[in-house]
Structure formats: structure tokens, C-alpha cells
């Protein structure tokens, strides 16, 4: 805890007095802590003399910021146009089924996976596409999903 507070302070001092720094600052904090905790946002507000409302406003505006803890592996399922016409829904259903996620749930019970829908990963030629961590998987079929996910868990 002590350590992470120090790391957090290091990030804050790096961005102090730089104009327009709130977004990159929050990006780094999220990288450090996994998601944006309420306490952390309050702490940043105090330290940086920005209102907590402004920080919360920015954090909720951009889809990249997470306000809830997320799984160890983030599975981004592309729901862009090319993937949509190539059956992205079927892929998403297969993933949720394999990970036993129901309804609006996005993180598995064992917190191994968080499933997220994104609009276009820029690999539209390989539609339907998903990205796990930094690795992109293209030309997917629902049958291929269990294999891809099982390989990640190892």
C-alpha cells in the first residue's frame, strides 16, 4: 500500500504544472491500480487542486476509464461495422457462454477475464476480431473460442 502511494505520488508530480495533463495522468494511474478507485480520484483532486467533479466527469466520459476492478485478462470484442456484418454477435455470445457470463456481467467470478465490447480494432480485414491483452485474433468462429480462451489460462 505504502509503495503504491509512493508510485501514485510519483505520477502526480510528473504531471504537476503540465497543462492538459489530466487524461494521460488518469491513464497512468489506471495502469498502476487496474481501475480508477473513488478514493484515488479524491486524492488526485486534493493533490492537483482540481475539483473531484472534473476528474469524475473526465473518468466517466471516456470509455477507456474503468470505475470497477477488472479481470486479469481483458477480452476486447470488436463490434465495429465489418465485424458486425461478419457475425460479431455470435462470437460475443460464444465468449460469454464459455466464460459463463450472464446478462450484463462482464467479469468472471475468478476475475481471470473481463469482456468488453469495442468499436473497431482496425483489423477489419480479419473480421470478426477480438483482442486479448495486446494480441489480436482474427477470422474467428464460435468453435474457435474455447481454444483461444483456454490457451490464455494456460
Amino acid at each position: 500500500m505504502q509503495n503504491s502511494r509512493q508510485e501514485l505520488d510519483a505520477i502526480l508530480s510528473k504531471f504537476k504544472d503540465r497543462h492538459g495533463a489530466l487524461i494521460p495522468l488518469l491513464q497512468e494511474v489506471q495502469l498502476l491500480e487496474g481501475y480508477l478507485k473513488k478514493e484515488t480520484m479524491k486524492y488526485i483532486a486534493d493533490q492537483m487542486s482540481i475539483s473531484a467533479a472534473e476528474i469524475f466527469g473526465v473518468a466517466t466520459f471516456y470509455s477507456m476509464f474503468r470505475l470497477k476492478p477488472q479481470g486479469k485478462h481483458v477480452v476486447r470484442v470488436c463490434k465495429g461495422t465489418a465485424c458486425h456484418v461478419s457475425g460479431a454477435n455470435v462470437i460475443l455470445n460464444a465468449i460469454k457462454e464459455h466464460l459463463k457470463l450472464e446478462g450484463e456481467e462482464d467479469t468472471t467470478e475468478d476475475t481471470m477475464f473481463t469482456v468488453m465490447e469495442v468499436a473497431c480494432l482496425g483489423c477489419c480485414s480479419l473480421a470478426p476480431v477480438i483482442m486479448i491483452g495486446d494480441q489480436t485474433y482474427g477470422k474467428l468462429t464460435p468453435e474457435a473460442i474455447p481454444g483461444v480462451l483456454n490457451k490464455i489460462v494456460g
Binding site: 463490434k79 465495429g80 461495422t81 458486425h84 468499436a119 473497431c120 482496425g122 477489419c124
Partner: peptide, 8 residues
């Protein structure tokens, strides 16, 4: 920013 979902 390339926002169009389906363009690269």
C-alpha cells in the same frame, strides 16, 4: 482518432 468503426 479514426473513429469510423470499420475503417483502418
Amino acid at each position: 482518432d479514426e473513429g469510423d468503426p470499420g475503417a483502418f
